[in-house]
Amino acid sequence: MSVIETLRQQLAVLEPTQIEIEDDSHQHAGHAGAREGGHFKLSIISPRFVGLTTMQRHRLVYDSVGDLKAVGIHALSIKAKAPTEL
């Protein structure tokens, strides 16, 4: 399974109304950390984020994904919004 599919599956618990994941790895090729895994950009909209701070939203995302390195991710950029904020 690709990293993007794995991420999608793991983030399904947040019941996202919209989820976009981009592989940005090509922009970081050759840099030392790139050996650990790819660079991904996540944009996620979920009703679960209502009333939460950005920090709490990012924690929810990280908790859902678990060990980033095990999934093949070196860096994950996150934009987490609630449906009401669009």
Partner: peptide, 24 residues
């Protein structure tokens, strides 16, 4: 209890990484 680097602390409080600091 934060999985990635960088990490910012202000007055002993965890602020977050690059995305959160930039958004703030």
């Amino acid at each position: 209890d934060w999985p990635t680097i960088p990490v910012v602390y202000i007055r002993g409080e965890l602020i977050g990484g690059c995305d959160i600091t930039t958004e703030m």
